[in-house]
Simulated scan of single mutants.
Amino acid sequence: MEKYYLSVLQNIMDIAGEPLKKLLAVFGSGENIWLAGEKELAFAHVLRENQLERFIAYRNSNKNLPHQVATICEKKHIFLCSIDDDDYPALLREIDTPPYVLFYRGRLGNNLPRIAMVGSRKISPYGRAAAERFSVALASCGFAVVSGGAYGVDTESHKGALSVGITEAVMGCGVDIAYPPTNANLLAEISETGAVISEYLPGTPPLKHNFPARNRIISGMSLGTLVVEAAERSGSLITAVCALEAGRDVFAVPASIFASGSRGSNKLIQQGAKLVLDSEDIISEYRDKIKLKTLSKKNGKMKKDFVLSKDEEKIFSLLTPDEPMSVDDILYQLTEATPARVSYHLLQMELRGLVQSDGAHRYVRK
């Protein structure tokens, strides 16, 4: 039951964070804190008088809450892991205020390196293509892609990673709540191979103030954070700041200076985030630290299942395995094509594992 006591305590505003850490040092366990008398808690000199009064009032109104949470989790097949468990994300323990307990649906402990991908909810076609491209490439190489389950970049990042590997969604509500509701099927699919994760009690609604706190978990679990597309006042920038505060890497996808929806990510680059053009720019940062797959089995199987469109066939027929071609090279031979269409078809074939970029925007068959 200790995990359930801790999970309740970390969700009480007057206790969460540093006060809970100090109370645990005094009382030894979450259960002891929950059952302690008012005088014992006062003598610990951790909570201010008004905090102590609010905590006692809350506890008196919710005496059986830890046991109720345990019952709900059992009924809804929700699991818990505490900060001392083996399946707790190792990097998350290193941040200043790690959750003592994580609720999750699915499976933690995939033992994969994690990369966070975040960005705008109001995604542009460019952002959509970039999110898909990077998530597919990173998941294919053995990274678990971590994001927030929201509209826009989060959704596209989860979908891309799911097509070839593992992804994890960190929620700003209980793991039994689909938010946004239209992503209910996506979250269910994520939990089949990865995990839907939260520090919040089951049934907790998606309150606005939960999301900045949620962002520290997204970045805290991950080796680095990739900002795909973010406006100047985007919540994604909070995740980037959390990553920097935890000493983690921040990457950003560049975009047009005229795109207001990307001013935040462009400014991150201006301030020192690593500009990335393809997944190799991220993978190269960790090649010496971790062993990565070159291609997932699932992606290899998918490769056989795709049928080329007529335009893709024309482009694919020009490519060879050993002589890279640029978009201009292809346009020279396909006079009826446009640069935008050729780039689009190359991206689609790259995402499906049919062609490969050499990092200088030249392509070969795989």
Rank of each mutant, 00 (worst) to 15 (best):
145 V>R: 07
84 D>W: 07
130 A>G: 03
191 S>C: 01
131 A>S: 15
185 N>G: 08
131 A>K: 02
119 G>Q: 10
161 A>W: 12
143 F>A: 02
76 K>C: 03
134 F>I: 09
85 D>Y: 13
187 L>D: 00
87 D>R: 14
163 S>T: 10
77 H>Y: 11
204 T>G: 13
129 A>D: 07
151 Y>R: 15
130 A>L: 08
98 P>M: 08
201 L>T: 11
154 D>F: 06
192 E>N: 15
125 P>D: 11
95 I>W: 06
95 I>M: 07
100 Y>P: 01
187 L>H: 13
194 G>V: 06
100 Y>Q: 07
150 A>D: 01
126 Y>F: 15
85 D>K: 13
161 A>S: 13
200 Y>H: 14
112 L>F: 10
208 K>Q: 13
151 Y>C: 03
106 G>K: 10
99 P>A: 04
204 T>C: 13
132 E>Q: 14
180 P>V: 01
188 A>P: 00
136 V>E: 05
105 R>E: 02
117 M>L: 15
138 L>S: 07
76 K>D: 10
167 T>N: 06
192 E>L: 15
82 S>E: 09
165 G>R: 14
179 Y>E: 02
143 F>P: 00
179 Y>M: 06
98 P>F: 03
108 L>H: 12
81 C>P: 08
108 L>A: 07
187 L>G: 00
90 A>H: 14
154 D>C: 05
131 A>F: 08
83 I>D: 01
202 P>E: 09
136 V>F: 13
125 P>E: 10
186 L>H: 00
207 L>P: 02
183 N>M: 03
132 E>H: 12
100 Y>W: 14
120 S>D: 04
102 L>R: 07
117 M>D: 05
195 A>G: 11
114 R>W: 05
157 S>P: 03
92 L>A: 05
96 D>W: 09
169 A>W: 03
160 G>F: 12
189 E>R: 15
150 A>Q: 11
90 A>D: 11
114 R>G: 02
94 E>F: 13
78 I>K: 14
208 K>D: 02
89 P>K: 13
141 C>Y: 05
113 P>K: 14
170 V>T: 07
187 L>M: 14
159 K>L: 14
124 S>R: 14
103 F>L: 08
